[in-house]
Simulated assay, not measured.
Amino acid sequence: MNLKNPYAEPGVFDVARNAFAWLVTGPHPVSLDGRDVRGLPPRLVPLDEVGALLRAKSCPQETRDAVWTELVTRSRAEGSTWTVACVGLALPVMIPVAAKLTNRFRGDVHDIHAAVLTGFLEALTDVDLTRLAILVRLRWAGFRAGHRALRQALDAAAPVADLGVRGTTEEHVGGHPDFVLLAAVDAGVITEAEAALIGDTRFGELSLTDAANARGQAYKATQQARRRAEARLATYLGTVGDECASLTRDRRGEPRNGTRRSVRGAEKSRRPVSPRPPKSGVGERGARLPACPHPTRSELEPGAVQEASTCD
Results as ranks from 00 to 15, higher is better:
N2M: 01
L3P: 00
K4G: 06
P6K: 04
Y7V: 07
P10C: 07
F13L: 02
F13N: 00
V15Q: 13
R17S: 14
R17F: 13
A21Q: 13
V24I: 15
V24M: 09
P27E: 12
L32Q: 03
D36R: 09
P41V: 11
P41L: 06
P46I: 01
L47V: 05
D48M: 04
G51M: 01
G51C: 02
L53P: 00
A56M: 08
R64A: 04
A66S: 14
E70T: 15
V72P: 05
R74G: 06
S75R: 07
E78I: 01
G79W: 00
G79F: 02
W82D: 01
V84R: 03
C86E: 03
L89P: 04
A90Y: 10
A90D: 07
L91A: 08
M94T: 13
P96A: 11
T102C: 09
T102A: 07
F105W: 08
D108V: 05
H113N: 02
A115S: 13
L117T: 03
T118Y: 07
G119L: 09
F120N: 02
F120W: 01
A123C: 10
L124D: 00
V127S: 06
D128L: 10
L129W: 12
L129P: 09
L129E: 04
L132C: 07
L135T: 14
L135M: 14
R137V: 06
A141C: 05
G142R: 02
G146Q: 01
G146F: 01
R148N: 03
A149E: 07
A153M: 01
D162N: 04
T169P: 00
T169R: 08
V173N: 09
G175I: 01
H176W: 08
L181R: 05
L182N: 10
A184Y: 08
D186G: 14
D186Q: 14
V189M: 09
V189D: 05
I190E: 04
E192C: 10
E192P: 00
A193Y: 08
E194W: 10
A195E: 05
A195S: 12
T201Y: 13
F203C: 00
T209W: 04
D210V: 10
D210A: 13
A218E: 14
A218G: 15
A221Y: 04
T222K: 05
R227H: 12
R227I: 03
R227Q: 14
R228T: 13
R228N: 09
A234V: 03
G238E: 10
T239M: 11
D242E: 15
T248C: 09
R249E: 11
R249M: 12
R249Y: 04
D250C: 04
R251L: 14
R252Y: 14
E254P: 01
P255I: 05
P255E: 06
R256V: 15
R260N: 02
S262W: 03
G265L: 12
E267Q: 10
E267L: 10
E267H: 03
R270L: 13
P278G: 15
C292H: 04
P293S: 04
P293N: 05
H294I: 12
P295H: 12
R297K: 12
S298L: 09
P302F: 07
G303Y: 05
A304L: 15
V305I: 13
Q306H: 15
T310Q: 14
C311A: 14
